[in-house]
Design a protein around this nucleic acid. Structure first.
Lengths: 220, 220
DNA sequence: AATCGCCCTTGATCTGCATCAAGGCGACAG
DNA sequence: CTGTCGCCTTGATGCAGATCAAGGGCGATT
């Protein structure tokens, strides 16, 4: 556990405001970090303006990969974000010496891999409505996991850390379609929207039911 | 390098015919393998019949994950497939003893992660035509990589290891749309199809150009 | 060579989402 | 209080891809 003590000592914190680019696709990234609070997005853009998010980075998520200097994606703060950072070299040296940390990285990467593949299922085969429900449900689950454990099966309230445009780029939809789906869910009584960034779910089980009898999806 | 010798000794080969399920989603998978020849698919199915492939498994690809007994996806032989297998326990014990192998697994997993994320970009933002071109181009590149290195910029011929239906489920399209896109590419002179499973690309650079000025995609 | 069965292709039509085009609403500044 | 700016919503219309419905080609079997 000596290594963890060294890591502990080597870390530094940094807080950035919304809109800050934490990494540019194809550019070197000399720090590894983990998200402490806030939300960042990983995305790729096309020359013609199309954009697709490939993942959300929420508290406890890891940014950057050991042994890879270059980020293949744009990473941008979607809200104010606080990071816990390590210099890449320091981290890599530690990993070389500690099978423990290396093993932990492998487990983490395997989890991310599953999440990325589940994401492909959502993008490839779900309707706009299902995508939006999936997004809300997973965000709620993720939030709950950070605190206690499971989502309460009664009413749940949650704050959306992303704008409609960002959600749209995440779900592979347009901003208008995304907005319309939120409105439709409101009409159906599945959600309430005290404000655009706030969602209240009166009956979480009922909402989750719309996607879970088919198949689950994953958010990050 | 002692460990590699042990691995060498522990491996066994197995050949299965087209259609064989190598793993069932949610079921334990007690062997790790790598594809020697042929092609397998990883997919998830919905209760209503929708299906989405999350990856192609081509020669040199790895099946199963160390430390995870259960496969989250269906894995099915899309053609006759030969596997090189290791018992999970044997492999895991080796990994625990050899940081070398563990490190190699991490690198491999990170590559798969990038591929899975690139795949999300294809599914989320590309048109049917772009998806099909992307598929053909990457299959050609993958095939070339297995032999020499780069794809010849002149004419290229390749065999499709997948049926139209499988390609459709891979690309998040219907079989009809997929077929129509192949026909359209033929009309445009970008490909020739001596048979349904055979594609000849008269000018590889011209085909690749249709997607590469936007963004690359990845196949597995 | 004839028959069967499996894919693959093509056509006609329908529909979900994109695109185009106005507003509306809340936050913030003066 | 009022104007402005950024973001969100809603409506009208168009189109890419899904769905429905026939064929057609080709390898396998006899």
């Amino acid at each position: 556990m000596d290594e963890l003590a060294i890591l502990e000592q080597a870390k530094s914190y940094r807080t950035v405001e919304r809109g800050t680019m934490l990494a540019e696709a194809g550019e070197p990234l000399d720090h590894l970090s983990s998200v402490v609070s806030g939300c960042a997005t990983m995305s790729r853009s096309f020359a013609d303006g199309r954009r697709q998010m490939v993942g959300l980075l929420l508290p406890s998520d890891f940014i950057g990969r050991p042994g890879r200097a270059v980020s293949p994606y744009n990473i941008e703060a979607a809200s104010e974000v606080t990071l816990c950072r390590f210099e890449r070299r320091t981290f890599e040296q530690l990993m070389d010496r500690s099978p423990n940390i290396a093993h932990r990285m492998l487990v983490m990467t395997l989890d991310e891999l599953d999440a990325a593949r589940d994401w492909a299922v959502v993008l490839g085969r779900m309707s706009a409505r299902e995508k939006v429900i999936n997004f809300i449900v997973n965000l709620a689950r993720r939030e709950a996991a950070a605190h206690d454990g499971t989502v309460a099966e009664g009413p749940v309230q949650l704050h959306l850390p992303l704008s409609r445009e960002t959600i749209a780029d995440y779900l592979g939809l347009t901003i208008e379609t995304t907005s319309r789906q939120f409105s439709a869910l409101r009409r159906d009584g599945l959600i309430e929207t005290p404000s655009a960034r706030e969602v209240r779910i009166p009956d979480f089980a009922r909402l989750a039911l719309e996607i879970d009898d088919d198949d689950g999806g994953v958010i990050s």
